[in-house]
Design a binder for these strands. Structure first.
Ligand SMILES: [Zn+2]
Ligand SMILES: [Zn+2]
Ligand SMILES: [Zn+2]
Ligand SMILES: [Zn+2]
Lengths: 169, 169
DNA sequence: GAAAAAATGTTACTTTATAACAATGCATTT
DNA sequence: AAATGCATTGTTATAAAGTAACATTTTTTC
């Protein structure tokens, strides 16, 4: 995976994926990471939880809870909201999924660490969401807040704009 | 109003208000700013819109739309959701109010410019929300995004943590 | 296998927000 | 002032997002 380096010399994973990238790999990586992480923690990645995670990773767009619901339901056996929300709760608790507040929607975590404050780049054109684990932003933000005497515990950083692909075309 | 200065030498309005500050001034300032801005733009700050703005400025906490609804309604004449949401829409369009996505709630704008990307400091203890117009964050964020080839058009930056007052006590 | 714990199913409901159309208010022209 | 046009508010209904409480099933532990 390509890397860029910012002015602080910090490594930054390239955020956006090409249109025709081998997405199976993204999914595969996410699922095996989930498997490993859950095994290691003694948490149970049940069928339902795994299905939800797979559905979320179906694309790089943020997914609405009720869309998941629809996709999980077949005419005979409708799945109910609590089922999906519980799966999401589990996946979020384990850092496998993030909620994007400004969209009321969910994306798979592509970050490295289990617990992290991520920032999101959200393309207004194509809808793709990309996670940045730029510690630099986190620090800049925390430093600025500190000037106001504020201690940051959790941050929501969601940037809406244009991704490189959509800018190009 | 007290000022702090960050490492870039940039001015930063002191974010949090004391517990017993003269809040009438905050309200007064907000309302006259609204008056002036609307007059200047030929926009109509109607009674309903003004009432909503006043209610929002009742405190420095973020207010839920349905709380506004309750406070606007008296037993006889209930106010309906669209009324409140329309007032909020107007106030947001003119930069007099911001929506705090991570809270599904609204706060009065205490910023200077009409159109700006603000950051919010949200105290998890007392609920007070403070607006920072730290251009430094905006720039840091945009710069980092640029490394990923992303163009930022709108940013949601909401920091949850402890305000100075609550930290002190 | 029985008991306990965890996960899922089910019902009902709360909270947040919007669509569509009717009525009213306000401003300008005649 | 009456007529016209547009902006605002009222009203009804419904969509969208999320949760509480309890029943049932599955999995683990003893
Ligand atoms: Zn992919
Ligand atoms: Zn992540
Ligand atoms: Zn005040
Ligand atoms: Zn503002």
């Amino acid at each position: 995976m390509a890397k860029a380096e910012n002015s602080d010399g910090e490594k930054l994973v390239k955020a956006f994926h090409g249109a025709h990238h081998a997405h199976g790999r993204c999914v595969g990586r996410a699922l095996s990471r989930a498997d490993a992480l859950c095994r290691q923690r003694g948490a149970r990645l049940t069928t339902m939880r795994r299905r939800v995670l797979e559905l979320i990773w179906d694309s790089h767009k943020a997914v609405k809870a009720y869309d998941l619901l629809d996709r999980l339901s077949d005419g005979e056996k409708p799945v109910r909201p609590p089922t999906v929300y519980r799966a999401l709760e589990f996946l979020m608790a384990h850092g496998l999924v993030h909620r994007v507040d400004s969209l009321n929607a969910f994306v798979g975590c592509s970050g490295a660490d289990a617990d992290h404050n991520a920032q999101f780049l959200i393309c207004q054109q194509c809808g793709d969401v990309s996670e940045m684990d730029g510690a630099a932003i986190g620090k800049a933000v925390a430093r600025q807040a500190q000037l106001a005497g504020f201690t940051v515990r959790r941050q929501t950083v969601e940037l809406h704009g244009e991704c490189p692909r959509c800018t190009a075309s």
